[in-house]
Design a protein around this nucleic acid. Structure first.
Lengths: 237, 237
DNA sequence: GTAATAGTGTCTATAAGACAGTATCCG
DNA sequence: CGGATACTGTCTTATAGACACTATTAC
């Protein structure tokens, strides 16, 4: 951090705006989905964008992300929130120089999306239509951010217990398997999946109870364990 | 990016300074090492810090990282440069609100480190003394950044061809193995390592030549392949 | 030749995938 | 009972690790 001309004079360094952008992922009706808001102001009015906003001068990046998550998406109490990357090309926002720190958030199920302050509309989009002709046109450089985020989520499912963040506090192994199948877009062998999850230390812990009410043998309930890394990982084919 | 009060008035958003910090890793005398500079100005005068500096108002983050790499470390033509994470706690720099985008750089071998503009000194430190009593005291929140960076490098060696970035353009399998051993701090079985590297599509391509001059059977030379992901990965034990 | 280093072959233990079979619910 | 879903067992195949062995250099 050996800076060339710093000091205490605010005019001595180039002024930037810093924002956080949020990639709020969920599984909605069995579909891996992302929350987007429709812009009603220029630039990019009518296009869809990631929720987000300015970082305040006295708050941390993480705090700004949680605040915007609550304000723009109505989501509170999210445990899993992590940085994706930072995007800062000089021309990414036509109004001014903006550096945006993109964050990933994972929610089990979203309450009815609420439109944020200057969003015309907010809704969940299936991830696999984004970036195709069937998907929305995205504002700014958000198409690239979304592509980076989706790939990151798919990769992290392999070697972290991230999938549990998409489940309710208590969940069954088949529910967890459905998360993997939705995110990866593949079918997994149920018996082998079960054995691998239970054989991975700290991935899930049994609650001792079962979920009944549906036809078929009742499924045992689990909570997430304390592992932060899956050893061995669950491999994407 | 639905921002609440933006517009074209620069006073309408909180002003930040944006910097890049660099984690320049290399293998020096068989030791996994990181370049640090000694600060000679307050704050943290006398402490060691990551090289870095302000992002100019009209350059990209990547460009700023490459420029600082050349200016502060005398390193040019680095191919492998990637974002680590962004650090922006309100009090991380006592002078002003600074958001820093940390980058990882990998160089085969460093020319004699040159002290940067306001660095008293610059040198390579073995990674495994950082964060211990035998290591230097770090400025700002750089201890945490370094810890994050080291872990990222160790992890990426598993599933990407990153290790080749520490080698010269042409290298032997034993040289590549030495990189893994230095970074992970383990000994690897030479025959098995050889088989795994050659069995991973696109990891390395033979040049058809050999390296002679040393005692022992000459080693075949390779160049890095075009793979970006190792399938299967090389697993850390 | 000897010492040193690179590379091959092979055996064994472990893990992954396929899939038959068993358990337990709803109606 | 039948259909549906959860779970267990087992067989086969692929992969990982240990390590004996062969190849080719410098001196």
């Amino acid at each position: 951090m050996t800076r060339t001309p710093p000091g205490y004079d605010p005019s001595a360094y180039p002024p930037f705006a810093v924002t956080v952008d949020l990639l709020v992922f969920t599984i909605h009706d069995g579909t891996f989905s992302l929350l987007l808001v429709e812009r009603d102001a220029e630039p990019f009015a009518g296009r869809w964008a990631l929720p987000g906003g300015f970082v305040q001068i006295d708050e941390s990046l993480d705090h700004a992300a949680r605040r915007e998550l609550a304000e723009e998406a109505g989501v509170t109490g999210v445990e899993v929130l992590e940085q994706l990357a930072t995007y800062g090309d000089p021309d990414r926002d036509p109004r001014m120089r903006v550096v945006s720190v993109a964050h990933l958030a994972f929610v089990p199920e979203l309450p009815a999306p609420t439109a944020g302050t200057d969003a015309a509309d907010a809704r969940l989009w299936p991830v696999d239509v984004l970036g195709t002709r069937r998907g929305p046109k995205l504002a700014f450089d958000h198409a690239r951010i979304v592509a980076d985020g989706v790939e990151r989520v798919r990769a992290k499912l392999e070697y972290t217990p991230l999938a549990t963040a998409f489940c309710a506090e208590e969940f069954t192994i088949p529910e967890l398997r459905a998360v993997y199948e939705a995110v990866w877009g593949v079918e997994l062998d149920a018996p082998n999946f079960q054995r691998k999850v239970l054989g991975t230390d700290g991935f899930v812990v049994p609650t001792g109870t079962e979920r009944t009410g549906a036809p078929g043998r009742p499924a045992r309930l689990y909570r997430r364990g304390d592992a932060t890394l899956l050893q061995p990982p669950l491999r994407r084919v």
